[in-house]
Amino acid sequence: MIPAARIAHHRRAAHLAPAVVIVAAMLAARLPVAQSHPALSLWLCLWLAADSLLLSRIARDGPGRPDARTVCATLAGACCLVSIAAPPALRAASLAMPGTMVAMALALLAHLALAGRQALAIARRDGTAARWESVAAQFLPPALVRLARAELVVLHMALLRWGGPADVPPGARAFAYHRHLTPMAITLLSLSAIEAAVYHVFLGHWSRLAALAMFVVSDLGLVYLVGVVKSFRFRPILLEADSLRIRAGLLLDVAVPLNRIESVSMAIDGADVRDAATLNAALLAWPNVIVHLRAPIDHHRLLRRRSIRRVAFRLDEPEPFVRLLQWRLGQP
């Protein structure tokens, strides 16, 4: 049997391989030999993009014949990527070949038709607000849809939410952790604003274009930082009916089933906190609560997967949380 670590490594490689192949193909298409044969270079780029994307999908989903939706989505994605990233000579060659344009248009239309039928079925079946993410994932790559959703959540948190209650589902008990973070968060925001202003002044004397680019990057980063800081209050740690949901604003959201929890304590051992099997969710402070698990659970972070046996975090008032969780676990 193949170890789980090797399977995870293969899946990460399957995610990264298409990007490497497509970037290499686009760079090779800018070489003089490729520029002198634009039609052949265009077809090679289309073939490499479609082949790498389809093989990556098969590697992630497992062995088996891909369905029509997967094939059409892969061909449409390859056509869009090559059309956007190809050099001008290759784009001009595609316009000069009507057959190529018709084939690319048919692949895109087939993908839109199949994805539209599936999206319509999801919209009719699912009545929740999250259905729009599933609908969009039928037309666009799911990773891109999740990234766009995360961006919209951060911007909404930073620009539109300035008051109101925290995000607490019905039947859940919330425990705050943001009070000890408030002074440090205000200091961090102030230093970031001062740093951005200083960069604007100095770069403005050197290059107006560089000052404008830094203005966009620094101000957007400041907006994101405001959203993350505000999320600490709006997203507390939750004790739900059957799980403990450990959150750190927009940075972390881990659900731990109550039947996996062995014990909870405020006696913190430094060796346990520093252990690789411990998820330390305390922000800018030492944790004051640690939860020990009966069996490890998987925690996915970007392209990494960790097996955790303990979760440490910090609460503003840890005693009520520990008493309530011990009562829920049937412990004295």
Score class of each variant (00 low, 15 high):
I2F: 09
P3V: 09
A5D: 11
A5K: 06
R6Y: 09
R11K: 13
A13P: 01
L16A: 10
V21N: 05
A29I: 01
A29E: 05
R30C: 12
L31F: 15
L31H: 08
V33G: 04
H37K: 12
L42P: 02
L42D: 00
C45K: 01
W47C: 15
R60C: 12
D61K: 13
P63G: 15
R65L: 10
A68E: 08
R69E: 11
C79I: 04
L81M: 12
P87Q: 10
A96S: 07
A96P: 00
M97L: 11
T100E: 07
M101H: 01
A103M: 10
L106A: 10
L106Y: 02
A113D: 14
A113H: 07
A121S: 07
D126Y: 14
A129Q: 09
W132Y: 13
E133D: 13
S134P: 00
S134Y: 15
F139C: 05
L147Y: 08
A148W: 13
A148V: 12
L152F: 11
A158V: 05
W162H: 12
G163C: 03
G171F: 15
A172K: 02
T182R: 14
A185N: 13
A185C: 14
I186L: 12
I186A: 15
A193N: 09
A197V: 11
H200Q: 12
L212A: 08
A213W: 08
D219W: 09
L220Q: 12
L220V: 08
L222D: 04
V223D: 04
V223Q: 01
V226W: 07
F234G: 02
F234I: 09
F234N: 03
A241V: 06
L244Q: 02
R247C: 08
A248C: 11
L252A: 07
A255D: 11
I261N: 00
I261C: 01
E262C: 05
A267H: 09
D269L: 01
D269N: 14
G270M: 08
G270D: 12
D275C: 14
T278Q: 03
L279P: 00
A285L: 05
L293I: 02
A295G: 11
I297K: 01
D298I: 00
R301A: 15
R301L: 08
L302H: 10
R304I: 03
R305G: 01
S307P: 04
S307W: 01
D316S: 07
D316C: 07
E317C: 07
L324V: 13
L324E: 08
P332N: 15
